[in-house]
Nucleic acid binder design. Structure first.
Lengths: 111, 111
DNA sequence: AAATAGTGTTGCTTTTAGGTTACACTGATG
DNA sequence: CATCAGTGTAACCTAAAAGCAACACTATTT
């Protein structure tokens, strides 16, 4: 059982729902709910996750994160990471590409 | 052609990639790239979108948003300029300084 | 002009997400 | 005890995602 399955099953039981009840509220088949809980799905679609989130009345982002589709809805990691980079205004796409290449180079030089 | 397809095709052509080249970089089939661009896919998997984002060196969140899987990533005006810079996580201060130097250099080369 | 390599495009096949049906096991009610 | 409603589970089927192979077209090269 993976993270997504654990998350959903926990939430479901918290609310006292059966697999079939959750499926009915989410308007998907109960077998699919079971398979997702069991972790038998490699790629549950965001559409289905959205339905389940609505039915469970829990944040869709949490399900997406549990499925590994997005990062934890914490503080924007990228923004903070590049916060120190100055003078990056008004860069063309070509220049951005070069900067990215350079960053990759810098990382490769680490010992 | 839907929003996702338009976004990917535009980015692809900006970089001068052929469908096959992009597919090779993303390690997916070229036919799949074409079908996504053509909007023949109702539910392209986040996994594939992640591969394409990496290959195009563009924000994965943009593709997810274009696909309608998440809301538009709220970009504050300042961050917009550096939004295209990837792989900048985990840079040391020294490395950030070097990147800024390089950016200054790029700008000085403009005609 | 024939061979070659690149491009986009299309039909066919495989894989898998998701649904339908049916099974086995409870616990409650007549 | 027998029926009935509810539970989880497992087989089978379908539709859609994704890959494979081959096509037609163009540009370059020998």
């Amino acid at each position: 059982m993976n993270e997504l399955g654990t998350y959903i099953q926990t939430k479901r039981k918290e609310k006292g729902y059966s697999i079939r009840k959750l499926a009915e509220l989410a308007e998907i088949s109960h077998t699919e709910v079971k398979r997702i809980e069991d972790g038998m799905r490699k790629q549950t679609s965001p559409q289905v996750l959205r339905s389940i989130a609505t039915a469970l009345n829990c944040p869709y982002e949490d399900l997406m994160a549990a499925a590994g589709y997005i990062d934890e809805p914490a503080v924007d990691a990228d923004a903070t990471a590049v916060a120190g980079i100055q003078n990056a205004d008004d860069l063309s796409q070509e220049e951005i590409d070069k900067v990215n290449e350079y960053i990759a180079f810098l990382k490769s030089q680490r010992k």
